[in-house]
Simulated assay, not measured.
Amino acid sequence: MTGLHREELSRLHGEGFCFPVELLSREEAAEVLRDVRRYEEIATRVGGVLGHHWTYPKSHLVAGWADRLVHDSRVLTVAENVLGPDLLVWATNLFFRKAGSPGELAWHQDAPYFGWEDFHGRTVRMWIALTDTDRDNGTMRYAPGTHHGGIMPHRYRGSGVSALLRGEEVEFDVDDETAVDVTLAAGQCSLHFPTTIHSSGPSVSLADRVCFAIDFIQPGVRPLAGPDSALLVRGTDGSGHYDLEPRLGEEFDPAALRAFSRATKIRHERLMNVMRAGRTAGAAAGQAV
């Protein structure tokens, strides 16, 4: 694995995303998928913090397959091509779209919910397909070039249950004709920036779609609204903005579960503060109008 080509980097910076990026073999992706299913069973059985938060944001601190992926030299080479030699894993996230699921996500950006300062050009999400992804199984869709606009306002479009399930929608008119479906073979990945507008649709497939996302950041990205933690996976951290997480030793052992619980609690509390601050700012703006 030699990392990204110049054309791929150019597309990432120009359009806010690039894919497909070759990463794992189809056989390796299938093996990871089997481990993910086992992880799901264990998390469900254990319950507690792990049972509630097994998909996000710290599976790499407790599950061996996730730890191996965030340290895989092919993964890190791609991330380094984008961000440089000093890399933190800020979060890991499992995305499932069940076969035939009507669920979908509204057009949105990730950045408003992460509470970062000085993050432009210094963070990237790697979305690794553990199954094939296409329009039929509700794959992600990108709105090209939208990362150039910075963080945009978001709100719920509608007040019913369906609107709540779809999530907040960015206040930007996405041209559906130019939207791009993220079509990947198992083992390939896509990259996008946290201000790139994206969505996902319902599934009409007979098979599940499963993807694993890794959020890489440079150490200089500062967390707002409270302390945070991250895992140093390459280079050095000269900023001290994050409590550095320990690398997993034995999966699911007491030390791993303690590290997972602590990091999850820190992240949950900070992001709740970010959301409260956003709601307060939105309410004040509404009163001013």
Rank of each mutant, 00 (worst) to 15 (best):
L271V: 11
A185F: 15
Q188H: 09
F119W: 13
P219L: 13
G115R: 01
F119E: 03
A66G: 09
F114N: 05
V289H: 13
W107M: 06
G115T: 01
V89Q: 08
V210W: 11
E41T: 10
R258M: 08
T139N: 09
V180C: 02
T92M: 02
V46R: 12
C18T: 00
S73Q: 00
T77M: 13
D175P: 06
N137D: 06
S162T: 08
V89M: 13
A99G: 10
C189T: 03
N137R: 05
A225W: 12
G150L: 09
Y242R: 04
E41V: 14
G3H: 04
R262P: 00
I217Q: 15
H154E: 01
I217C: 14
A30M: 09
A29M: 12
G84T: 01
K58P: 02
A259Q: 05
L184K: 07
I197K: 03
L76R: 07
W65T: 02
R247M: 12
F212G: 02
G286W: 13
A259V: 03
V36T: 04
V62T: 02
T133R: 06
D67N: 11
A281D: 05
T92R: 04
Y56E: 00
S229G: 06
E269Y: 13
A283C: 10
L191A: 01
T55M: 15
A66Q: 07
L69A: 02
A79F: 12
L248I: 04
R258G: 06
T123C: 15
L61V: 15
F216M: 05
L224V: 02
Q188K: 06
E269D: 07
V233L: 09
G16L: 09
G138T: 01
F216R: 00
A277F: 13
M140E: 04
H198K: 09
R26M: 08
T2R: 11
R247A: 12
V124P: 02
K58I: 08
F119T: 01
R166M: 12
T280L: 15
I197S: 07
P223V: 13
I42T: 08
L184Q: 04
S159G: 15
A29R: 07
H13S: 04
P202Q: 10
S25L: 07
V89W: 14
E168P: 03
G14I: 12
R276L: 12
V180L: 01
V62D: 06
G138L: 11
G286T: 05
P144M: 04
G249L: 02
S190F: 12
N93G: 11
F17V: 04
E7K: 00
L105M: 15
D118P: 07
M126F: 13
A230R: 01
G278Q: 06
R247T: 08
V49G: 07
Y56A: 08
D173A: 14
G286Y: 14
R141N: 07
S239D: 01
D253T: 12
D118F: 15
L257Q: 03
S239L: 09
L9T: 11
E7H: 14
S10Q: 08
K58A: 14
G100C: 07
E8N: 02
T55E: 13
E27S: 15
E40Q: 14
A281G: 05
F212D: 04
A259G: 01
S190V: 09
E104D: 05
R258I: 05
R270A: 13
